[in-house]
Amino acid sequence: MSAGLLSIRNVGKHFGGLHVLHDVNFEVPAGTIYGLIGPNGAGKTTVFNLVTGLLQPNSGSITFQGEDLVGLPSHRITQRGIARTFQNIRIFKEMDLLENVMVGLHDHLHYGTFGMLFNTPGYRAAEKRARERALELLTWVGLDHKADTLADNLSYGDQRKLEFARALATEPKLLLLDEPVAGMNPSEKTILMEEIRNIRQRGYGVFMIEHDMRFVMGLCDRIAVLNFGRIIAEGTPDQIRNNPEVIEAYLGKEDAA
């Protein structure tokens, strides 16, 4: 197995007397598609919020490439190489696709306020590079032919792909996908599955939450299962689908029997 990229060790999270996560342990290897699944309310989104700095753990450690993430604000975590999409698509609908992706590149444009205000050669060169990179990322997700289209005019599936392109514009090493196929039809799911495989083949790690078991089992290299805030299983898709604890968590004892 590849070396660990993201490591979560003994992580606990509570809100007052409500304990959401209990001693959570797993590791996302580099160069893989890793899934985190579990029933509604299991704590999956809380894990994502902890990794991206929207929340802080009450106990345990979260490291990325060996560097501690606990206590860092979200923008610093993004700068270290973690990008995220959300279950509810967040794009700038009044901008065209190229502009949406260029927003994700702003941390990599080093022209400063002076350059922008006075349209210096350095500013123009940086803008040109940004447009070229944004168009390249749109090509990766098959949207380059719509670069000048307003994002509000895209189909749901294409809006999701645009969100992927913008996340990749931050130059991440790990892409976190929060229920990427929620609300999609079967055809859109098939297309998006291939897009995620292409992202992995380009050298990015992928860590995803998803409720669609057919999608998860057909895509992920490894899967962790969270139930009532605890990891109850971790392994390959075959190991997970045949695990009695996982079956019980999804079906209940009587149905599992």
Rank of each mutant, 00 (worst) to 15 (best):
E27G: 04
R160F: 07
L36M: 11
K146P: 00
I223P: 12
D68R: 13
M193D: 04
S2H: 13
E234V: 13
L69R: 08
S155P: 03
R222E: 15
L177H: 06
G203P: 12
S2Y: 07
A165T: 04
E194A: 13
E127F: 01
F86Q: 07
L54Q: 14
R166D: 03
E194R: 15
Y111P: 04
G31P: 05
M217P: 03
L69F: 06
A151G: 09
L117A: 15
I33V: 15
R129D: 13
L143H: 08
R129N: 12
I77V: 14
G71K: 09
E127S: 06
S7Y: 00
V141G: 09
A257K: 12
L50C: 10
M102L: 03
Y156Q: 13
N40V: 11
L226V: 05
E94R: 14
G41P: 08
I209C: 01
H19A: 14
N198W: 00
N243F: 03
F48W: 08
N58M: 05
N242H: 15
S59Y: 05
A126R: 02
N153F: 13
A233I: 08
A169F: 05
P244I: 08
L6M: 12
H211L: 11
S74P: 07
I196N: 11
F164K: 04
N153L: 13
T139Q: 15
A3K: 14
A130F: 06
T46A: 08
I231H: 00
F26I: 04
L162M: 02
K13W: 03
L6H: 12
E179C: 09
R9H: 13
G183L: 10
L162C: 04
Y123D: 07
R230D: 10
E132Y: 03
V216T: 10
L72G: 03
N58S: 14
Q201W: 01
L36C: 03
R84K: 13
A147Y: 08
M213L: 15
Y204M: 07
F215D: 01
I223G: 12
L97F: 04
T139A: 15
D178W: 05
P29R: 12
R124H: 14
I62H: 02
E136K: 12
S2F: 07
D96K: 09
N227V: 15
M102G: 01
G235L: 12
I199N: 05
L21N: 10
H14V: 00
D96Y: 02
E179K: 09
F92K: 01
K146I: 00
M213G: 06
E234R: 11
A151I: 09
N198T: 12
L98F: 00
S187G: 02
E234M: 09
G31Q: 10
A125G: 01
W140F: 14
G115N: 06
W140N: 04
A169C: 06
E254C: 00
V11H: 08
K128D: 14
A125W: 06
G218D: 11
D238L: 10
N198Q: 15
P186S: 04
K173I: 02
F114E: 06
M217D: 06
